[in-house]
């Protein structure tokens, strides 16, 4: 069964708003690269799948 620690997480989740960890440059890079690669690959793979595989 799924079990949850006795620790109350409400306080921790509330604290996160006041003690916000700003996005680091490496996180921004990860997000931007991931989305960019996703969009470019989307176009390439859609073309490839329709060009080389039967319907």
């Amino acid at each position: 069964m799924i079990r949850v620690d006795e620790t109350k997480l409400t306080d921790e989740l509330r604290r996160m708003e006041s003690e916000y960890e700003p996005l680091l440059p490496v996180e921004k890079t990860l997000i931007v690269w991931s989305l960019s690669l996703g969009v470019v690959l989307l176009a390439v793979l859609v073309w490839f799948s329709h060009a080389f595989f039967e319907q």
């Binding site: 990860l30 997000i31 991931s34 989305l35 989307l42 859609v46 490839f48």
Partner: peptide, 12 residues
Amino acid sequence: CAIVEAYLIYWA
């Protein structure tokens, strides 16, 4: 193809 896209777009 579909899941490569899902990882790259969804997760980010």
